[in-house]
Amino acid sequence: MSEIMIKICGLTTEDTMRAALDAGADMVGLVFFPKSPRHVSLSQACKLADMARGRAQVVALTVNMDLDSLSRINELVRPDLFQFHGSETPEAIAAAKVMFGKPVMKAVAISSADDLEEARFFAVVADRLLFDAKPPKGSDLPGGNGVSFDWDLLKDLDLPKPFMLSGGLDPSNVAEAIRRSGARAVDVSSGVERDKGVKDIEKIKAFVAAARSTFAVAGE
């Protein structure tokens, strides 16, 4: 059975990073995508990653980034894994994995059962898949849009790699999402914010607590 993971993504300040770590998040995500309200500079990211090192896995989220830019993040921020959240090909992901020698997670946008077939191509090269909802029309952000998909699509999903559930999760619905999807790992960004790109410390605590208690019951 895959390992339980709770990820807080899109952290941008020391206060919210500290809150995520103190709450017991297993993974913390730093976003390197200028269009996102959660984008961090390399200097910001280095400070935040240093806070998290040894307490949670540091995830560098990128979108269709070239290898030179990925190398710079790898060298300066030293993330534990890369999350690819764009239209990267399996070949590009495989190349990055070999180049950096680190685990990689690929986000796959879901709206119907047909989209799960795409996941099988990425499962060959990625160490973990992240299932997110397809962006609403007009959005230029591939994730962090606060929309969800039918969690029942993931029930009894047979994949060779573990997956993480994302998209529209928040403290009030994460328990239901875990029960319906069978997920052992969850990811949240906009669902623990008070304003777009601004994390709420109490919501972070509530999300981790709700997910943790649901996983504990599911494991009984």
Rank of each mutant, 00 (worst) to 15 (best):
S190H: 05
V104W: 04
L141C: 06
R55I: 00
A96K: 11
A52V: 07
I201T: 14
A92M: 15
L48Y: 00
S69L: 11
A209G: 09
G144V: 04
S189I: 02
D68W: 11
S148Q: 05
L21N: 04
R212L: 07
V208G: 05
K137W: 08
D80G: 15
K97R: 15
E193C: 07
S181Y: 01
K137E: 15
F149H: 07
F149G: 04
K97Y: 09
K199N: 04
A56S: 14
D152M: 13
M27C: 11
M65G: 00
G167K: 00
S181F: 00
R128I: 11
D132S: 03
S190E: 03
S87M: 15
V186A: 01
F33A: 02
M27A: 11
T13G: 01
I6N: 02
E202A: 15
G168L: 02
D156K: 08
M99I: 13
A177V: 09
R38G: 04
R53E: 00
G29E: 03
L153M: 12
A216G: 03
A56I: 08
A206R: 15
G10D: 04
L48H: 05
G182F: 08
L30H: 07
G219H: 13
G138I: 10
G101N: 13
E118H: 13
A211G: 09
D150S: 10
R38W: 06
A216N: 10
T89Q: 14
K35D: 11
A177D: 01
D115A: 09
R18L: 14
M1Y: 03
L70Y: 10
K47S: 14
L81Y: 15
P135E: 07
I6E: 01
L21P: 00
P37L: 05
D132N: 06
K7F: 03
L70I: 14
K134Y: 07
D150R: 08
S71W: 13
A60W: 01
S181M: 05
P79M: 15
L129H: 00
K196V: 14
M17Q: 07
V40F: 10
V174L: 08
E176G: 09
E202I: 12
R18G: 09
T13F: 02
V174W: 01
G144D: 01
D158L: 08
L116N: 08
E220V: 11
V104K: 11
E14L: 13
V28R: 00
D156V: 01
D114S: 13
K161C: 13
V198P: 03
V104P: 01
A56H: 06
A206G: 13
L154F: 05
E88W: 09
F32M: 09
S139D: 03
V40R: 06
N173W: 03
A92I: 14
E117N: 13
G138D: 10
S111F: 06
F122S: 06
D195Y: 13
L130Y: 03
M164K: 05
A206C: 12
A45K: 01
E91F: 09
L11M: 12
P90E: 11
G191V: 04
E3S: 12
K205H: 15
F122M: 06
G168Q: 06
G29H: 03
A177K: 03
F84V: 04
L21A: 02
A56L: 08
L130E: 02
L11E: 04
V147T: 08
A95I: 14
L48C: 05
D150A: 12
A52W: 05
V108Y: 02
A109I: 06
L70F: 12
D132Q: 04
G86S: 11
I201N: 11
